[in-house]
Amino acid sequence: MLRPKKNLLLSEIGDFTRFVVRFFREAVRPRYEMQELIHQCFVIGYKSFSLVGLTAFIMGLVLTMQLRPSMVHYGVEAEIPAMVGIAIIREIGPVITALIFAGKIGSSIGAELGSMRVTEQIDAMEVSGTNPFKYLVVTRTLAATFMLPVLVVLADGIALYGSFLGVNIYEVLNFRLFYTQVIDNLAYYDVLPAFAKTFFFGFAVGIVGCYKGYYSTKGTEGVGRSANSAVVMSSVLIFILDLLAVQITELIWHTR
């Protein structure tokens, strides 16, 4: 039988959009699953904290060591803290943390909901007087939205400390002085948009993980695919959102 081939990308975008709209509709309507939300915030934060901390530390350290030769070449090594500070706060902290978060949390949400779907646990919740969309999707997405900014703030701090140690490999710099240099060089339009975009990154990771898991197809292979495509799709979304964020920031503050 010949049928016009369905455009897969378009229908995926359509399904995803419908899922996001449903999220907002269900999120504002009561019964609010506060207990599960708090539990998920704890689980998500706890699961990713050590990984985020470790990568942030290495990032700060390595970035500083890599920057140093060029800075010395131009005789501006005194500007290292300022420069690293901008790079970490505005871009590297949020984006790298979000990507790690997508790998860790996006995949685990995708796999968890996927296996709940294929073993009928989601149906079982529904017949037990529970709206599974609220109980599973809304709580996890909100938890990811709120926890990523917290993790990014922690990661920024740890990365800056890594950078401080990186500077100290070559010269002795007082910790206080290092931080003063970083802070003095930051304007509110460096910090605010960078912080604001992390909410969107967190939301993207949470909703994509839930979307992929919630509509997982039968079989354990389907679960693996959900987890995998959750990471791919949310990583791409993070970059797209980052691009949008920088455009919007420029429009508002004319930072160029």
Binding site: M116, E120, A124
Partner: peptide, 14 residues
Amino acid sequence: AQVGFLFQSNALYD
């Protein structure tokens, strides 16, 4: 609430 359902795959919450 008045109808029990035993799922083919048990559906116990992991």
